[in-house]
Design a protein around this nucleic acid. Sequence first.
DNA 1: GTTTATTATCGTAATAATACGATAAAGAAC
DNA 2: GTTCTTTATCGTATTATTACGATAATAAAC
Lengths: 110, 110
Amino acid sequence: MPKSKLYLFKKTEVQLANLLKALSHPARIAILSTLSKRTECVCGEVVNVIPLAQATVSQHLKALKSAGLISGEFEGPKSSYCLNWKNIEELSSMLEDLVTTLKNNQQRCC
Amino acid sequence: MPKSKLYLFKKTEVQLANLLKALSHPARIAILSTLSKRTECVCGEVVNVIPLAQATVSQHLKALKSAGLISGEFEGPKSSYCLNWKNIEELSSMLEDLVTTLKNNQQRCC
DNA sequence: GTTTATTATCGTAATAATACGATAAAGAAC
DNA sequence: GTTCTTTATCGTATTATTACGATAATAAAC
């Protein structure tokens, strides 16, 4: 019965929530770190570092990709994933904006 | 069979992921905004603003509380919830640190 | 003490996320 | 063309999240 109620919220809230969700698993944070250290962003290097099965890593990569935090090109037996700086910066600044807004709003609550 | 593999990751990754997860739902972002605007942080005011049932809002409040993003005191028929600035700042700075680290690590990947 | 107002918790149902083995797909190496 | 290597997808099982009605709990108001 619990249908998604996401449509009831503000667009920016849903957008920020989606970006945060994309990073809300340690594996996906670790994947971003790993990708940032590699000159060649091949999935195999990620699989070697992340302590999860290949299928699971691929799934996490897909989640990051669909959130726009990484972009990837599939070229036969090698696919190269890269950090998508535009959206990483956007996530960072959206969260910063939220915190700033919270501070500005703040009344004497507590 | 999928037992949690969280223990396989770095402590900081798990910690950041938990904070991000706490904010990865629009309702919980909206709750923080609402609380920031109120001089009296009573749950009822939140329930009136968030378009979800009272039980659901209470559940989201619990999630925010257990992540440490808000703190609350239950005093009979009124409970007052407040933003927990220490941890909100920590979330913000942990994410900023991550982005900075990603930037510093960056090789010529893509 | 009884009623009222407010919030938390319980029970439950539906949906989403997590995890992995097995298999498919696709180009490289032979 | 066959084999090998690498990555994606499928199927499936488990667990977590989301959502809400109903009920309990708690203190104030009467």
